[in-house]
């Protein structure tokens, strides 16, 4: 129908609500996690290049720049995990008869529990 008014396109829509900003922060973790995965691939490639090449690479990673980058990567990876586990009970409800498993319990069973286990095993493996 003619005469309708259409609002102009809002390119900066993600600034309009706090929820949109939280969404954008969550989505942006993928850029940092992806960037870290490339570094992880390089680390494994250097491992394939022999002991000397790997030691050289590990020594380079001790620089303040790489430390800072890894702090950013860790924050992004942890935030990805936290937001993912918050979404799991919403996206995969578990019903016990008529009752839905409460979200905090579902997040622990399907998220935080396995997460802590995996992290503990990996860290223990390298430190033992």
């Amino acid at each position: 129908m003619s005469g309708q008014y259409h609002r102009p396109h809002r390119w900066a829509w993600f600034l309009e609500r706090p929820g949109y900003m939280r969404f954008m922060v969550r989505e942006l973790t993928s850029f940092f996690v992806g960037g870290y995965l490339v570094v992880f691939l390089i680390t494994l490639a250097r491992l394939g290049g022999g002991e000397a090449a790997f030691a050289e690479w590990v020594a380079a990673l001790a620089s303040p720049g790489w430390m800072a980058a890894h702090i950013v990567a860790l924050v992004a990876a942890v935030w990805h995990a936290v937001t993912w586990f918050a979404a799991v009970p919403q996206a995969m409800p578990i019903y016990l008869g008529e009752e839905r498993l409460p979200a905090p319990i579902a997040a622990i069973v399907m998220g935080y529990g396995p997460w802590l286990t995996v992290t503990a095993v990996i860290v223990w493996w390298v430190l033992r």
């Binding site: 870290y36 570094v39 980058a69 990567a73 860790l74 995990a81 586990f85 995996v118 992290t119």
Partner: peptide, 28 residues
């Protein structure tokens, strides 16, 4: 990514490149 990547970052970003050379070599 949620389950594994934080642990990977801890290992390759902090555990491997910190400490003295002997520790780094052992962890490597």
């Amino acid at each position: 990514a949620a389950l594994f990547v934080p642990a990977f970052v801890i290992v390759t970003g902090f555990l491997l490149p910190s400490g003295d050379a002997a520790v780094a070599a052992e962890r490597s």
